[in-house]
Every structure is written in structure tokens, then in C-alpha cells.
Design a protein around this nucleic acid. Sequence first.
DNA 1: GTCTATAAGAGGATAGAC
DNA 2: GTCTATCCTCTTATAGAC
Lengths: 217, 217
Amino acid sequence: MDITARKKPEPSDKTTRIQEANRRVILDAALDVFSAYGFRGTTIDQIAEKASMSKPNLLYYFKRKQDIYVSVLEETLEAWLQPLHDLDPAGNPIEELRRYISKKLQMSALKPEASRLFANEILHGAPAIQTFLKTVLKKLVDEKAAVIRQWVSDGRLAPIDPYHLIFMIWATTQHYSDFDVQIRAVLGNQVDKPGFNDQVSQAVLSLILNGVKVRQV
Amino acid sequence: MDITARKKPEPSDKTTRIQEANRRVILDAALDVFSAYGFRGTTIDQIAEKASMSKPNLLYYFKRKQDIYVSVLEETLEAWLQPLHDLDPAGNPIEELRRYISKKLQMSALKPEASRLFANEILHGAPAIQTFLKTVLKKLVDEKAAVIRQWVSDGRLAPIDPYHLIFMIWATTQHYSDFDVQIRAVLGNQVDKPGFNDQVSQAVLSLILNGVKVRQV
DNA sequence: GTCTATAAGAGGATAGAC
DNA sequence: GTCTATCCTCTTATAGAC
């Protein structure tokens, strides 16, 4: 089941255009359903219906339910880490963090299903992406934590533990999509009004950036 | 399934000591299993085994799987909101927030299963606590948001939207239990070392409190 | 590639003896 | 109150016709 145990499709694995299109439809449907109900809570029937396809037909493209799940996760993970990749050691610290946070918020708002799929996987012990977290993710975070640490020791950021800063950025930027129903229960329909996302950005950015700005004494 | 649709046990519902003890064992086991695997991912057999009880015997105490789930949630919710209840309008704003955040962090660290059970329920649309969120939770948050807003307009806190402040406190304080495996993948076994929880407290408190402290100009 | 039919098994829930 | 045995539904996955 673990993601890293699967090989990536080779260029030699020729797929026709109709195959690609059908896989695309299935994966899109699967993201919706898996993120809403979790792995066990999702039935192949649900995915098939959403993909307007019969169950056996769907299983022609993905032999097992797990294969669909892992494929959806794989697709999501790459994109999910891109913003952190882009954190530039040569840039202005505050501006780099602002860009990172904004990008994360934007992605969560645009694809809340992806955020929830990921949250659910981790919440339940990350059975499918355990190795990925310990290798790819850890390596990237270590690398970017070093960048932030350097900024701090150069006096360009207030003293803060870089790992905890990264965790808190993750927590706050994904909270609005992962806990959407709770936010809605409290705030009502104002979350669907035009300015809401900007309001969230403003709140999250000001809180975190205020916390890391160097104070003039 | 919704929590508020169920009546609370009356004093007239006499239960023997052994009944109470067995229900206690079941609910403790159920919290562990439900929080680890979710509602659908959990089997009655798993709970029964953890409670050292046969499945039919367990079903003698709770007729249906849903009943166990709802009971566990009920127990958890009350305790979960207590710290917010305790936010005192008459207290010192920074100290009140510090106490609130510390208490939330402490509870998450002490009962990560409860945090994850709650997170999972909300992540999947809160089918069992929808009404609770829209009534009890909303009322409490509205009330405490008004308190924080007053502190701000009295100039005792930096200008910040009280709702978003509360959401960010929730996000950051529960992140370390909900996303535990991700934290572990990145930080390794240092999360089990003695000082780790203090380190987390320090990071979370300094970031958030710095963001709300009034700056002297 | 897509369908109908169905095998195979897991898991929730109950019957009824003790 | 607790157990063994069992029913029955739901769901994954496959067989085989078209």
C-alpha cells in the first residue's frame, strides 16, 4: 500500500488517449469521494457513479480500490509541497514567508478536497505515505528549516524555532479547509461571501508575520 | 445519529455498578479505536477485543455501533469546550489567552485520541455533531468573541478579528496531536523527549501572543 | 472496453442456550 | 449478563458474454 513501493509509469507504458481521459475522470471523482468519506468509508460504487461509469469498468482501469487511492494521493502530494520548494534562501525573509503562506492558503481554498484527503490520511497514521513523509517530506523540511535558521541568525527574523514555524504555517493555512464545517457552523454563510478569503489571508498573515518580524528596540 | 436528538440518561435510569463499569471499559476502548480508524474503519470486533469482551456482549450494552460512537463523542465534547468557557472577561487579556492556549495544548497532549476523534468527525462533515456545532459551539464562540472584541476596543489587545484568533488557536493547539505522525516523520524521536511539550508551548504561545500584544509606539 | 451476473468475504446485528 | 451460532446485508473483486 505504501506509495514509495509503487513504480512510476514508464514512458514505455503506452496509454491511449481514451485511457488517459478515463483515468482522469476516475481520479477526479475519487478525490471528491475519498476526501469526503475516507478510505474505508468510500465504496467503489460511489466513485463509479460520480465518474459515470460501471463498477467493473472502473476496475478495468484500476485493479483495486487501494490503487485508486494511492494514485490520487500521489498526484496530490507533489503539488502540495511545491510552495515550500519555492522558498528562496536569496529572497527577503518576510516576503518569502508571505508568499509561502499566501500560496498555501490559496491552494487550500482552491482544492479543499486535496487538503482533507491529506489530513485524513495523516490523522489515521499515514498508512499509505509513511515512507514518503520520512524521506521526501523530511528532507525538504530539514532543508528549508536550515534556510529559516540562517535568516534568524543573520538577524533578519525574530528568534523562532524554524520547525515549529513551519508546523504552525501548515496548521493555520489548512485549518480553514479541513475544519470547514466547523467554521461554517460558527460564521454562517459569510464564508461564501466574496471578501472572506482575503479576510482569512489578512488574519493569518498578520498574526504569523508579526510573530517573526524583528522588533526595533 | 445527531447528538442533540438523543436524550441524556435520567436519574430514573438505574444502572448497576457492573453496568457502569462495563460501559466505561467499552467507551475507553471505543475512543482508541474510533480515533485511530474513523467510524467506518472501525469494526465492533476491534472494540470488543480491546474491551476484552465478546461482540454480542458488547452489543448488550450498546445496541448499535452508532450508539457507541455518539456516546464517546458526547463525553468528549463537554470537556473539550471547558477551557474556552473559562476565558474570563474580567481577567488580564494576555494572561487569559495564555491560560487558554496552555490548557488546550495540555489537553491535546494528554488526550490526543479525543482530539483526533473530533478532527475526524469534522473533517467528514460532522454528521453526528452538526446541530451541536451550530447551537452550543456557535453560542459559546460568539460570546467569547465579544469578550475579545471588547478587549481590543479597550486598547488592551492589538486589533485582530476575534473569530480568526480563536480559529488559529484551535488550529495550532490541535495540530500536534492530529498530525502527530507527520510531526514524528520530520522530527524523529525527539518528540518523545521530556522537554518537547514545553518547546511546543513556548513556540505556539510566543507566536500568537506576540501577534496580539499591544505595541508601544 | 464495457456490460451483466455472481463469487467470496467482511462485518453488523440477532436468536436462543446457559 | 454472557456465550455460540447464525443470519443477512453490503462491498470488493472476478468471470465471461458482447
